Computed example of a mutant assay.
Amino acid sequence: MTQTHTIDATTHSQLKAIVDAALERRADDVKVLDLSGVSSTLDFFVIATATAGLQLNAVQENVKQKAMEAGLPRPTVEGPSERWLLMAFGASIVVHLMTREAREYYDLEGLWSDAREVSFAE
């Protein structure tokens, strides 16, 4: 059984800033997974779909800017490739920007299916 925990207001606003930043650059299917109950080292994954190249870079730049404005440290970026880019804001929030093909292939939501999805009321 997974445990759920309450997300503090600061983390909640940081996650919302990341989600909003991705959506501003037209990322699709943006999801936030709370990994705290299923991982001893990770807290949150943000997963978003973008087309390769220019859109992936536009989403990355906007997420980085808005996340830092929300108080997160400068992210470390792994990749970047034309299919998948990973941004780590410390150990607490990891953002995965992926093409639709990469997202379907790696199936992070399936791999972390025990994690609770975090939703943001509009």
Rank of each mutant, 00 (worst) to 15 (best):
P73T: 03
I7T: 07
W84H: 02
N62K: 15
L85R: 12
E82L: 12
H5L: 10
A67H: 06
V59I: 15
G90E: 05
A21D: 05
D114Q: 13
L23S: 11
D34F: 01
E104H: 10
I18C: 06
G53W: 11
Y106A: 09
A48V: 08
F120T: 04
R100Y: 05
E78K: 12
V63C: 01
G90S: 07
A70E: 12
A48C: 14
D20V: 13
D43N: 13
V77G: 02
A27F: 06
A21M: 11
D28N: 12
E104Q: 14
L85K: 14
L42G: 02
T41W: 08
R74C: 07
V38N: 05
A50H: 09
D20W: 04
A115E: 01
L97G: 05
A121S: 15
Y106F: 13
G53K: 14
V94T: 15
V19W: 04
E109L: 06
A91D: 12
A67G: 02
V38T: 06
W112L: 01
K31N: 07
L33Y: 00
E101P: 03
S36Q: 14
R74S: 14
A52K: 14
R74G: 07
A48F: 09
G37W: 11
V95W: 00
K64V: 14
L35Y: 04
F120P: 04
R116T: 13
V95H: 00
S39G: 09
D107T: 11
S13Y: 03
A22G: 08
G90L: 07
L56E: 09
A22N: 03
D29H: 11
V118E: 04
L111K: 02
V59M: 03
E69R: 14
Y105A: 07
L15G: 02
